[in-house]
Amino acid sequence: MVAREHLLDSKQMAQFVADGYLRFDEVVPDELNKAAYKQMEAGDIERPGAGTKLGGVWQDSAIGQIIRLPQIQGAMASLVGSDPLYDHHAVHIVQPSHKQGQVWHADAIIDLRLDFDIQFFYFCHDTPREMGGTMILPGSQYRRVSESDIGRYQNFLGQLPMVCKAGTVMVCHHGIWHCAQPNLTQDTRYMFKLRLNPTQKQEQLWNTDDVDAPEIGGILGTNHEWYGNESRIEVVNRIRQWRHLTGNEKFDVSYWMGRLENAPSGTA
């Protein structure tokens, strides 16, 4: 059981729904970063079968200790429950002096579910801009695209390269658009990615003490400049996701859904 103090709060959950990611800077202690670096360098991370319960995986390794850190467990429990399934992992390696960025893509295929998976991106060493790291596009997670269908795009207003110190972890919605960035340094870049599936209904799994906070609507209404004229439609996507997460089918932001759902039946 994850201690309540380590669970996400409602504002963080709303931020996740609006942006498709949360980041936790320098949450992994340095000795574990160094041990994980060695594991990645050696290619020494066991690969369980897809659909395995995460709880029993990597019992005696640095990567296992990292995913069991309280803050990581708190984010995991809040988003996909305390007993998620291992989907897959990958160690992404960008060689030194690699000058081309990866094409923009979303992982997997078109995924219509409001029951979402999460992906952890873990950076075991300092990642300055000249080293990459992974670039994400905040707010892209509800777009219906299949993998590299978005490979024609190169730059967006608001694109975000993960520039971070060692021990930083980002957690993303499965649909977020992302791409590895060039590594212009003389050092190899490593990033560990882990996808997890929920096993329990993703409803109010976080610390809901502030679920009625007045700031929630504002967070869910956050605009991302690259949306252009579609910003209001993206808010509809978020309202639907927030209703799914809270169980509150009347939740609304700026009356966008209430207006559409108005079905008058009264007579004068």
Partner: peptide, 24 residues
């Protein structure tokens, strides 16, 4: 306003890539 952009160079003089510019 331009919100996203990409360039492709058939002259071979440049090699634009993902995430290489902050401003259009």
């Amino acid at each position: 306003r331009v919100v996203s952009w990409a360039t492709y160079d058939g002259t071979g003089n440049s090699s634009p890539t993902s995430g290489d510019e902050d401003k259009p």
